[in-house]
Design a protein around this nucleic acid. Sequence first.
RNA 1: GCUCCCUUCGUCUAGUGGUUAGGACGCUGGCCUCUCACGCCGGUAACAGGGGUUCGAAUCCCCUAGGGAGCGCCA
Length: 467
Amino acid sequence: MSVVTRFPPSPTGYLHIGGARTALFNWLYTRKVGGRMVLRIEDTDLERSTEESVRAIFDGLEWLGLDYDDGPYFQTRRMERYGEVVSRLLNSGHAYHCYCSKEALDSMRAEQREKGLKPRYDGRCRDREPVPGASSPVVRFRNPLSGAVVIDDQIKGRIEIRNEELDDLVIARSDGVPTYNLTVVVDDMDMGITHVIRGDDHINNTPRQINILKALGAHLPVYAHVPMILGQDGKRMSKRHGAVAVTEYRNQGYLPRALLNYLVRLGWSHGDREMFSIEEMIDLFDIKDVHRSAAVFDPDKLLWVNYEYMKSASLDELRRFSEPFFSEAGIAIDQMDNWRDVLRANQERSKTLVELVQRSRFFYVPPDEFDEKAVRKHFKDPAREVLEAATGRFRALEDWHAASIHSVIHDIAEKMGMGLGKVAQPIRVALAGEPVSPPIDQTLSILGRQETLERLSGAIKFIEQQM
RNA sequence: GCUCCCUUCGUCUAGUGGUUAGGACGCUGGCCUCUCACGCCGGUAACAGGGGUUCGAAUCCCCUAGGGAGCGCCA
């Protein structure tokens, strides 16, 4: 039997880090075994579901490159089918109407809690005769009273829950809209899902779902509950832990492959290996090897992984991915004839695309001011003479190449009897506005003679004004 | 409170009865050096605790503690 997995986000927000990893694990496993992955939008919470969230989820998945083979299905379009199943359950005696008011249930739970018991429905409507005239009852599933449900979880191992611990859950609200536990079961059954790979916050739902599946005579899927991703404080990842939406990482200049690589190592490993291409992930990944314990999300390590990908990316990839950031900075990078040189010069010194753009900016946009600290440190005394000497020599230079520029700079340092730094730094500040740039000879050669001379002259004027 | 899940350096992890408990991120000392960054060499730091089993436990069993999740007419 071929494998069918599913990724069922509910569109109540963006695609977050935890969801992305669950999607990744599903995707990797599916690709590995040559199965099919279903995308299902669980939008039965009409209050909180939004179209915008649906788009954000599609967007996130697409950016990460996690595609699916079937769907997207929307649960709100399957209401008729859920209704069918509910009445089937009602007719077979696996479900019943419950007429309890919300208030009655609340006080029942409060009472149980007070007695130190687990709050749960006590089954008071279980054997009540149907009340024909009564208004809008809910439908509850008639859970078995004895026995136990055993889950042979692919990650957690064998889990056994006694049916006494479970209560009769609501499967249809008073307005007829089915609840989560019912829709999941129906969909998983109808869509032929063979493997349910989801967050371990669903472990507690699993025995209930299994009981419903059994009542429906359906095949039970294989379950694999992946542990949560925690924030730095050890609590479940949420907004207060900083960036949780995958699109935020896109905006911060991360490469999708880097995020994937980081995510796959959160809860899964292959010996001491850190870096995996997508192909290697598919090849090496197995759901059985996912760890049982939760993992803390570490932004520093993600940054490092991203940096590794930045360094190994091709210039074309780099341009493609950084293009939006450049254009935001007012630079049409792909129309610049020296973009390769600029990107190459900054590639291995940038941990993110945002940083790459920041570092590259001055090649295209002259600094509008000089960094104050840099001025104090590098524009002091011999700086003006250095810049003037450099101007003369650069103007006279026959060919404008890094090598010839390099020897000129060395020559100036030697003739003026000072270290290379005393020469390079003033020039650097004159060109970049700050004391940071790629190697000075390389920087000049990329910038071009004319632009270099102009900026040098601007810096000399600036120094004169300061005096 | 009850039920379920989890527990190796700060973090991600290797490890499946015998290891000086390894790697990576971070932090850090040094080297390199025209800045930034890279690179190289070195350092820091862990088996939650207690009982067993065993000649021998990070590895197997039990208990305790701690953490997480769930207990809805949310998903």
